[in-house]
Write a protein that binds this DNA or RNA. Structure first.
Lengths: 224, 224, 224, 224
DNA sequence: TATGAATGAGTATTCATTCAT
DNA sequence: GATGAATGAATACTCATTCAT
């Protein structure tokens, strides 16, 4: 009703906000940003738990107490960093789907572009996404929003593909869903989302994406 | 086949041996087995580092000192357990390929069976494989043998598929390799071999395998 | 009796006032009351130090700074609450002695009534009295007024008993003083005023009071 | 049956032993003694929790880890010290009762001696007994053995008095029990067992004991 | 060989108090 | 007067590794 609800974009489509309150005022905000950034940097350098609050305090130039003023625990600080990354991914995907909707006129155009663009979204966010997935394995406060992100992703991809259902032979919904899973699994693996053994991939990234798209297209178009 | 296989049983096709010496004699061997088994059990219960050498000592009924006599460090003990699991996987895969060679007469028979059987091999070994992949992300002494296992796996799959290269349209080698990667990625993801966020998968396992096989077949058979 | 009692209501017969200034005006006073009440409640719930000024600030709806404006420290806030309780005890005892003076006509009437009524006064104030005694063990700012309360108590009891000195055999003053000490010690113990090990007393309260009175009477009346 | 059960005095009549294992061998034992003594000293200097494990480690010349080898936690270390004190009190009381049994021929001899001797037992052990009683207020692992000690004490005193029941007028058992409670309460209070406000007692100790004994005797002998 | 007691560095968290606004 | 965000010192506990016996 008020101006509030009309102007603002709905912050966080994820149920993620509860972890750490963002202060709104100037100095406060700045100190919040510093500790958040310090934590983020350290997490990227070392892994999601391999850092000390003392380090955050020193790098971020904030007192230990300040950290506890915003985040109830080290865990919550870690979660906040991860959740922010999840939100960024959601935004990036949304932008990607909008772009694809304009550009792709048929399945043959859509699939390769989707594979490429989605790969790019994941690649850009891979470092924190890796931490997110690792942590989701044991932390429900990460697996829940993580699941949301994954579901959105799947839903977006399915919706996009089903715009071309006329081109799809057989059970279009089933095929689209399978395609999404296989694409995500392949890209995730290539980006070592899930910390794989062969992290230093020597298999070529570009050919894989191309063949992956071909495979999906062949499958989608195939009549039963 | 090689001279290697005639003289002694081919212990560890992997370059893994440096990690912990297996004593050949009775009492020593028994105590080695006990500490190894205790560590393996604890790793499966809690994760690859979430146990204490004291716990190994108690459960395995061996002294702390004994453990250090066989394994230079806790890390090496963990590595030994993981490497043994990798070897088991290699064996299981070899058995699988032999079986498939007898049973599958054409690509249409081979691909679905391979997907199924490989899925089973991975599923059975998933718990330790998960630990292996997690650890490989930061421990070169695991990522190296892990890479070997992966390469063997890929090579085996490629070789098997190329027996039917006549049925494959276009660049058979490229396609086979792509297929292998995509199958592995999809199965690995489904088994959470990389600790994914959506660990409690609600997507159906059986349909995915079926569609995965269809996709691969459609792709392989497709003429350029 | 004295000039003191005519001009103003005898606020605090104890040398306790230094601890926290009570503001006289409306809003200020109200906020003082709220923080005081919040502290008192928390102390009764958790013990005299087991609460946080942040909790006082939240429950009492006052800012941390306000608390420091009235009380120089957390310790002083605690002291203020305890001292108020001591004053209440003094009032209750004075009322009790006035009542007893009217009702008790001889030693045989006085002693049992005194034991009963004093027990009641202590019982009602036991929760904060317990905190007072605990703290007096190490805080001179509590032990001093605590001593005053105890001395008043002893003096009142002695004075009352000595009204019946004709009935007392031998050194009436010594006997009265001894009786007071023994009565207080026994009641205090029974009320766990001093945090005793056997806090859940199973010994019966009523018989003890009766026998305690008998013991005191037998002693007081006994000729040397 | 074995020599074990005949030679050894039954260690710890209290169910207290579970808190911290006493090592039996030389060097181990010595280090145990050092950390125990250091903790005891610190507790007497500062109170039962007002010390740091680092201090124990330094004063006792043992590593922090060693402390945790014997005591699972700081709390358990504190408990062990307190429990040992409780056991000493039990021994001292037993010795006292044996002595009194030989010396006291009638109630008139027994009561004053008992008051004196019991006062001495409590006085000697007062410092740790104070800590014991304080802690018993919130720690069941102390209140339980504390209750045992108190019950033994009461039972011993009752038994001793009832040897002279012929001299006691009326309900001897009730009177004896009342006398015990009142004596203990009075002595405990005088020794500030329970951290009293007037810790620096100026009332005379000796007269109180004398009058306390008189009071009890007058009461016990009084015919109903 | 085998033992297992001893070591001690390393870290998340709390909360009374201050002081810029 | 009033506020409440910021401070930072202080402390129990873990566990891989060593080495005297």
């Amino acid at each position: 009703m008020s101006s509030q609800s009309t102007k603002r974009k709905p912050r966080s489509p994820l149920a993620v906000e509860q972890v750490g309150r963002v202060p709104q005022q100037g100095r406060s905000k700045a100190s919040y940003e510093r500790m958040f950034a310090a934590a983020r940097t350290l997490m990227l350098e070392r892994g999601d738990e391999e850092f000390t609050l003392i380090e955050v305090s020193q790098r971020g130039n904030v007192s230990i107490g300040s950290i506890y003023l915003r985040f109830e625990s080290k865990d919550n600080l870690v979660r906040a960093v991860i959740c922010e990354a999840l939100e960024e991914i959601v935004s990036a995907e949304e932008a990607m789907f909008e772009r694809l909707a304009d550009e792709a006129r048929d399945l043959g155009e859509f699939v390769p572009r989707y594979v490429n663009d989605y790969a790019e979204v994941l690649r850009v966010n891979a470092p924190l996404l890796r931490l997110a997935m690792r942590r989701a394995a044991f932390d429900p406060l990460i697996s829940a929003p993580g699941k949301q992100v994954a579901d959105r992703s799947a839903a977006g991809a399915n919706r996009a593909m089903l715009r071309f259902s006329a081109e799809i032979g057989g059970d279009a919904a089933l095929k689209a869903d399978s395609v999404y899973h296989i694409i995500f699994a392949t890209l995730a693996r290539e980006l070592s989302l899930g910390s794989t053994a062969e992290s230093a991939r020597n298999y070529d990234w570009e050919p894989l994406k191309r063949e992956l798209a071909r495979m999906c297209l062949a499958y989608l178009r195939q009549q039963p």
